[in-house]
Nucleic acid binder design. Structure first.
Lengths: 163, 163
DNA sequence: GCCATATAGTTGCACTTGCAACCATGTCAA
DNA sequence: TTGACATGGTTGCAAGTGCAACTATATGGC
């Protein structure tokens, strides 16, 4: 059999379907897909746009930079999503008076409305997932996820989830 | 306060950081990031390419269609990844004799070598993640992930994880 | 004030992606 | 056999994306 510098890998040893990163990705994608339908097909929004809307709805006015820090999304992605959200009249931007480089973002009434709409559906979606797992399991599960996120952030990068 | 057709959402009720899909995405991304470095910066491979390599290494010769079915990756993505892998002389394709539409894919010696190399590192990476969680927690965690994946697949779509 | 350096945000570019449309082959039924 | 439909795989196109380079403003030392 062929061997490079290392030993050949055993098929039993290498079980792709057991790999946590692999499972994690599949699960994340599967779970997001469902909800993506809501904002995507109903409103033509991207994940980034939805996330920004959610952050502004949840935490109130803030700058693009704040959003980057909080949600670990690339700043160019944020910039373009903001442009799109503004074009749709969902957010307002006004130059900060204390720092004229920065722009304060707020939801417009229309933005509030959409946030309320999507937020309710997000809560509902989350409830369904939790219900499926059972409350206790869901909580443990969430705890593990937080562990993984925290440890990665501690180690170095953190960052974004794709669309 | 502004209200659309639905009630306004309570900031406490809408806690983005508690949402399972959100946590799941962050965790998945964080966990993959680390390993992505290996195949990406060392070999310039994409996630799809690595996954195809892994599947061929694990299960042996198969068609692009099989890979789609097994790993739930979009067929165009598979098609292009295969083209790239072939250009790098990592896989061979030959037309199936029983169905001349299909192409049987196999790893070249060079492909085997790279699979061995990356496979070893993947196992190592998985071990680290599991070690961090503890064996028992890791197993329960994996079980939950499988539940989520299965339920999504049953419900309708399944599909892919992004790069 | 003036310069060097840092930061908020945008833009150009090259690349990846998903979708629909497409080509070639296979299948099944009359 | 032939025609209608299904299937494996590729390609054109219109997004979305990351990165590096850029503009404009801010800040701190001199």
């Amino acid at each position: 059999m062929k061997a490079g510098k290392g030993k050949k890998i055993d098929a039993e040893e290498f079980d792709l379907e057991q790999f946590l990163p692999y499972l994690l990705n599949q699960a994340a994608e599967a779970t997001s897909r469902a909800f993506q339908e809501v904002y995507r097909t109903t409103y033509g929004m991207t994940r980034t746009q939805w996330r920004i809307l959610a952050n502004l709805g949840r935490f109130g006015a803030m700058t693009a930079r704040d959003i980057c820090r909080i949600s670990h999304i690339e700043k160019t992605k944020v910039s373009r999503a903001i442009t799109a959200l503004e074009r749709e009249d969902l957010i307002d931007r006004r130059v900060s008076e204390t720092d004229r480089r920065a722009e304060i973002l707020t939801l417009t009434p229309r933005g509030e409305e959409r946030f309320a709409e999507l937020g309710r559906k997000a809560i509902e979606h989350d409830r369904q997932v939790r219900a499926q797992l059972g409350a206790e399991v869901a909580e443990q599960f969430a705890a593990v996820l937080r562990t993984l996120i925290a440890s990665a952030q501690g180690r170095g990068e953190a960052d974004d989830a794709p669309d």
